Simulated scan of single mutants.
Amino acid sequence: MELFGRHAETAALDRLLDRAADRAGSGLVLWGEPGIGKTTLLEYAVSAASDATVLRCRGTRMLRVSVPRGVRALSASAYWLRGRAALFDGRPQKALSDLLCLVESGHEASHATIALLAAVDTVEAAVQVGSSDVAVAQVAMVQEWAQRTGATWARTASHRLRALVQGGSAAEISFRAALDVAGAGAHSFEYARTRLLYGEWLRRARRRADASTQLAAAAETFDRLGADPLRVRALREQALTDPGGTPRVADPPTAAGLTAQELRVAQLAADRLTNREIAAQLLISPRTVGHHLANVYPKLGITSRRQLARIDFAGDLRLS
């Protein structure tokens, strides 16, 4: 069952949270809702929202229920929500900070099962911030589970995560293996995430036509599921596969003289992302981010990042 982005199921999760204090145990509790069937509270929590703000708010609400009652599975789920929200929001360092609590001995959110399920997000965040030791350890954990159980999701995740930590042709072999696992396509959201990551790898390898194919398919799925942050990311990557066909920037940015990439960097910096976080989201180096900002400031007539936060990006790019 596809849970991502469905309003009825999001409302169902809210009803479940209202009852969680009375019914939640220490494991992954099965719930039944009319018209939805049985699934875990965790699956609802992580899959039913597509907006990072909703994910963060949901995580906070879950912690209010779980921490006072010592319901560790629910607390772990909340940290997973917060980590995934930060990852989708382009803040991998914050994401990694929350997700590593799942494997921190003695932490209120320490939970081996949920740490295993969250590994798809933990590895992606670790790779983006350059924490190779964390990424390798998480991949090993998922590989061990895949070998032990043969579960479709674990086999798919194992290949995808291995691709993220590998280089050269080995990465492509693993990406292709993840897409080719029997039954993987039934999990639409995660399948699209694999295509997005593979498409990004192909673009960096300068295989633009192949990258565009993967990224377009990922964007279409994210659009259907209502996963807007990842849809935008996929479309942005797809535009970069064809510099000659990249959509032109709207009139106000053109008047200010910003390139499309300078505009993207400026908007992310205005949202208080660090250079490293911007670099991870746009798949460029922090040094390149700094170079773009150095070009942006004089074009906008400003001298600091603080002033950048006051620019009217929805209007004429003037300082408010």
Rank of each mutant, 00 (worst) to 15 (best):
R6T: 02
A8Q: 13
A11K: 14
A12N: 07
R19Y: 02
A20M: 09
A21Y: 03
D22T: 14
G27L: 06
G27A: 09
V29A: 10
W31C: 00
G37L: 01
G37K: 00
T40Y: 15
Y44R: 15
A52Q: 13
L55C: 03
R58V: 10
G70K: 03
R72D: 07
S77M: 14
R82G: 03
G83C: 05
S97D: 06
E108Y: 10
H111W: 13
L116T: 05
L116M: 13
A119Q: 09
A119E: 12
A119F: 11
V120A: 14
T122A: 13
E124V: 12
V127F: 03
A137T: 12
M141G: 03
V142T: 11
E144F: 13
E144G: 03
A146L: 05
T152W: 10
T152C: 12
W153E: 05
R162F: 05
L164G: 03
Q166I: 00
G167Q: 11
G168F: 09
S174Y: 02
L179G: 06
V181I: 13
G199T: 09
W201N: 01
R203N: 09
R206K: 12
A211I: 10
S212F: 13
Q214F: 03
Q214E: 09
L215F: 04
A217W: 04
D228H: 08
A234Y: 11
L235R: 15
Q238P: 02
L240C: 04
G244F: 07
G245E: 10
P247S: 08
V249W: 00
G257Y: 11
L258Y: 06
L263Q: 12
A269W: 01
A279C: 11
S285F: 10
R287V: 09
L293N: 08
L300D: 00
R305S: 14
R305A: 15
R306E: 14
D312W: 01
A314F: 00
D316Q: 11
L317G: 01
S320C: 14
S320T: 13
